[in-house]
């Protein structure tokens, strides 16, 4: 591959990758910052600076680490496995327009790589022997089980029309099969946003600001982590949030017909703006909504499933019948 490339293309590709790496490291910090800032402003506070997450990470990196005496290698490597997996996923998922191509972008591969992260998150939480972490991970597994059909079906319905399971093809801006389908894109995007709120344990499902161990989901799983371990997990989660919001922002942007014909740079800026815009909306939503009672959460997820089913219906009508 590299031999057949001219020097200019090689330099161009390298520059693209470097730019992509920079965006991948900056965006999670900014996304978290925007959500927190919005919530603070809605509560009438000034809030921490936009880059506070970065300062937190630096602080955590300098701290020493306390590990439960029960824990085994899974506990500490789990954090590394999750981050490595998430970084790999960020190169596979088309969460930003005109992203350089990763090793593959198969839809099912991506979904199952997310599942790999989840398995190790659950194992790490249970490894310390803490009952709180175990309850958190039990709830996390339940939510993931409920939300998986919805998120997969949303992506699959796009794949039905695009006639490919490669995410690069589905989200390609030169693929005419999906060019004028605002309804489908909108439904899929909304389904993915709702699914990612559940996956990330955000507001209507879990309150990230809560501090009662018995009701927490994601925070309970992090309860035993400290120092660098915690820093890795926090960054992984922020990156996951960026990638998932980015994916749904891409769907929403594609629902807008003009977006397809914008110049490349504008598309990239709009993608970044889309992620931050979604972060802003989530911040607003979290300020006005309350955490759902645990038994009501399946009802929330059922709405996500409904949107996916509608998307699948549209896709079948669009891609198979006509």
């Amino acid at each position: 591959m590299w031999q057949s490339m001219s020097t200019e293309t090689f330099l161009f590709e390298t520059a693209r990758w470097i730019l992509f790496a920079v965006i991948t490291f900056v965006m999670p910090i900014l996304t978290i910052g925007v959500v927190r800032k919005t919530r603070a402003r809605m509560q009438g506070r000034m809030g921490a600076p936009l880059l506070q997450a970065l300062f937190d990470l630096r602080k955590l990196m300098q701290k020493s680490e306390a590990v439960s005496s029960t824990a085994t290698w899974i506990f500490r490597s789990g954090a590394g496995i999750e981050l490595a997996n998430m970084l790999l996923l960020s190169t596979l998922v088309p969460w930003i327009a005109n992203k350089p191509d990763g090793v593959s972008s198969d839809l099912f591969l991506i979904v199952y790589l997310f599942a790999l992260s989840r398995l190790f998150a659950i194992l790490a939480a249970l490894d310390s022997g803490s009952p709180f972490g175990a309850f958190g991970s039990s709830r996390d597994a339940t939510l993931a089980m409920l939300v998986e059909p919805a998120s997969l079906l949303a992506l699959v319905s796009l794949a039905v029309v695009a006639k490919s399971t490669e995410m690069n093809v589905i989200f390609s801006l030169t693929n005419v099969l999906l060019a004028h389908d605002p309804g489908l894109w909108f439904l899929a995007g909304t389904a993915i946003v709702m699914a990612s709120l559940v996956e990330l344990s955000r507001m209507p499902v879990d309150d990230p600001a809560t501090h009662l161990e018995l009701t927490m989901i994601h925070e309970a799983m992090l309860l035993e982590s400290s120092g660098r371990n915690l820093a890795l997990r926090e960054f992984t989660r922020a990156l996951k949030m960026t990638v998932l919001f980015g994916l749904s922002a891409q769907c929403y942007l594609r629902a807008w017909d003009d977006f397809w014909h914008f110049p490349v740079v504008a598309q990239v800026w709009l993608s970044i703006g889309g992620i931050l815009g979604l972060a802003l909306l989530v911040g607003l939503f979290e300020s006005v909504s309350v955490k759902l009672q645990w038994r009501k959460v399946p009802e929330f997820i059922s709405y996500c499933m409904t949107l996916s089913l509608l998307a699948a219906m549209v896709a079948v009508a669009r891609g198979v019948v006509h």
């Binding site: 399946p298 009802e299 059922s302 709405y303 499933m305 409904t306 089913l309 509608l310 219906m313 009508a317």
Partner: peptide, 17 residues
Amino acid sequence: SAPLAMHLNIGLTIMSY
């Protein structure tokens, strides 16, 4: 249950199509 009824309703919509 309400969620199941909602999903069933989509089936009815497909039927109406």
